[in-house]
Computed example of a mutant assay.
Amino acid sequence: MTMTRHYGMDWLRIGAFALLILYHIGMYFVPWGWHVKTPRPMDWVQIPMMATNSWRLPLLFLVSGYASAALFAKLGGPGAFLRSRAARLLIPLAFGMIVVIPVQPWIELVTQYGYAASFAHFWAHDYFRFGTLEGIVLPTWQHLWFVVYLFVYTLLAVLLLLLVPEAARARITDVAARLLGGWGILVLPLAAWMAILFAFPGYRETHALFDDGPNHLHYLVPFFTGWLLRVRPVLFLAVARCWRTAAGLAVVAYATVAWAIWASPGEGPPPVGVVTWFMAVRLVQGWAAIVALVGIADCFWNRDHARRPMLAEAVFPFYIIHQTVIVLVGYWLLLGGVGPAASFPILVAATVAGCWAFYLGGRRIGWLRPLIGLQRRA
Rank of each mutant, 00 (worst) to 15 (best):
Val348Gln: 05
Leu162Ser: 07
Ala378Cys: 01
His216Asn: 04
Val327Lys: 08
Leu237Met: 09
Phe29Lys: 02
Ala73Asp: 05
Cys355Arg: 10
Phe119Gly: 11
Gln375Asp: 10
Trp227Phe: 15
Leu328Met: 09
Ala87Ile: 05
Val294Ile: 11
Leu160Asp: 01
Ala314Gln: 10
Ala70Gln: 10
Trp367Cys: 08
Ala240Pro: 12
Leu186Ala: 15
Leu371Tyr: 00
Ile21Ser: 06
Leu209Lys: 13
Glu313Ser: 15
Ser68Gly: 09
Pro345Trp: 01
Val329Tyr: 07
Gln142Glu: 15
Arg88Ile: 03
Tyr203Cys: 10
Leu229Phe: 05
Ile296Ser: 08
Met42Ala: 14
Ser64Arg: 02
Met279Leu: 13
Tyr66His: 13
Gly114Thr: 04
Pro233Arg: 00
Tyr113Gln: 05
Leu209Ser: 14
Gly213Pro: 00
Leu62Phe: 02
Val274Tyr: 07
Phe318Glu: 04
Ile372Cys: 06
Leu371Trp: 03
Arg303Tyr: 06
Leu283Phe: 14
Ala258Cys: 09
Ile136Pro: 11
Leu163Glu: 06
Tyr153Gln: 04
Ile91Cys: 03
Leu229Val: 09
Asn302Gly: 02
Pro340Cys: 08
Val99Lys: 07
Trp44Thr: 03
Pro31Asp: 13
Ile25Met: 02
Phe316Leu: 06
Ile107Gln: 07
Tyr219His: 13
